[in-house]
C-alpha cells in the first residue's frame, strides 16, 4: 500500500513536467499553424526540430562548451563564495572589510564589466568563468554566512564542553549547518549562471558556445537557428538545476528521509 502510493508519486513527478512540455509545444505548434505565422517571424516546433537535426553536431558541441563554462565558473564562484563566508564568519575585521566590496561587486551590472574582462583576460575561457562565478558568488556568500550564524549558541557551548576543538566544531557543527542555505543559493543561481555564460559569449565569442551560436543565428535572421539555440539553452538550464538538486540529495540525506541511507557510512549494521 505504502509502496504503491510512493510509486504513484514518483510517476506523477515525471508525468507533470512531461505533460507541461507537451502542452507548451502543442500550443506553440497550433498557434503558428492557425495564424499562418511566416517562418522568419516564428518557426514551428517541427521547423526547429528539423534545424536541430541538420545542425546537430555544432549545437551539441556548443552545448558542451557552454556547459563547461557553466560548470567551471559555477564551481569557482561557489567555492570562492564559501571560503569568503567562512573567513567573514571567523573574523569581524574581515567581515567589515569584505562586506562593502561584496555589495559593490553585486551592484555593478555584469554586462558592464564583461567587455572589460575580455580586454583583461582575452577571448578564451577565463572571462566566461569569471562572469559565471560572479553570478553565483554573492548569493552563496550571503546564504552561507546566514547558515554559519544560525548555529544555536547552546550547541556551540555543548560541543565545547565535550572538548571539541575549533576545527572539529567547524567540521561537525558549523559546516553541516551551511548545507541547506548553500543549496538554496545554488539552486537559485544555477539557471542565472547559464544566462551569465551566454552574456559572456556575446561579448567575445571564439568559443563556439550556444550563446555565440544564438548571436550568429540572430544576426542572420535565422529564427529557426535562434529557437534551436534557445531550446538548447533551456535544456542547459534544466540540466544545471538538476545537477545541483542531485548533489544536494547526495549531501543532505536527512532532508529527504527519516533514516540514514543503507549504503551510507553512518548506517549502522550488526
Amino acid at each position: 500500500m505504502h509502496d504503491l502510493t510512493e510509486n504513484r508519486s514518483v510517476l506523477l513527478k515525471i508525468f507533470y513536467p512531461v505533460a507541461a512540455l507537451v502542452l507548451v509545444v502543442g500550443a506553440w505548434a497550433f498557434l503558428v499553424w492557425f495564424y499562418e505565422v511566416p517562418r522568419y517571424v516564428m518557426p514551428s516546433p517541427s521547423d526547429v526540430a528539423n534545424h536541430i537535426s541538420e545542425d546537430w553536431q555544432t549545437l551539441v558541441k556548443g552545448f558542451g562548451v557552454t556547459f563547461l563554462e557553466f560548470l567551471l565558473g559555477f564551481t569557482l564562484g561557489a567555492g570562492t563564495g564559501f571560503v569568503f563566508a567562512v573567513l567573514m564568519d571567523m573574523s569581524r575585521t574581515v567581515r567589515g572589510i569584505l562586506y562593502p566590496i561584496l555589495i559593490l561587486s553585486q551592484a555593478i551590472p555584469i554586462i558592464a564589466i564583461s567587455a572589460a574582462l575580455t580586454i583583461w583576460l582575452g577571448f578564451g575561457l577565463a572571462p566566461k568563468l569569471v562572469i559565471v562565478a560572479l553570478v553565483v558568488f554573492f548569493p552563496v556568500v550571503v546564504n552561507v554566512l546566514d547558515g554559519l550564524a544560525s548555529v544555536d549558541k547552546d550547541v556551540l557551548n555543548l560541543v565545547r564542553s565535550m572538548g571539541a576543538s575549533k576545527f572539529s566544531t567547524f567540521r561537525h557543527v558549523k559546516l553541516p549547518a551551511t548545507y541547506s542555505p548553500l543549496f538554496s543559493a545554488l539552486k537559485l543561481s544555477a539557471t542565472f549562471s547559464v544566462t551569465g555564460a551566454v552574456i559572456a559569449e556575446w561579448t567575445a565569442s571564439t568559443s563556439g558556445g550556444i550563446g555565440a551560436y544564438l548571436l550568429q543565428a540572430n544576426s542572420r535572421l535565422n529564427t529557426a537557428g535562434t529557437f534551436s539555440a534557445i531550446t538548447f539553452l533551456a535544456a542547459l538550464g534544466i540540466v544545471s538545476f538538476l545537477l545541483v538538486v542531485a548533489v544536494e540529495y547526495l549531501l543532505t540525506p536527512w532532508k529527504s528521509g527519516h533514516k540514514a541511507r543503507r549504503w551510507s557510512r553512518s548506517y549502522w549494521q550488526e
Partner: peptide, 26 residues
C-alpha cells in the same frame, strides 16, 4: 552536560548523536 533543549544535530543519526563526544575528539 544536558539541557532542556535536546540540541541533537539534525544531520546525524540517533547513533551518531549518541557517540558525538567521541566523534568530536577525532
Amino acid at each position: 552536560y544536558m539541557l532542556q533543549k535536546d540540541l541533537l544535530l539534525p544531520w546525524r543519526t540517533v547513533l551518531d548523536n549518541i557517540v558525538l563526544g567521541a566523534v568530536l575528539k577525532g
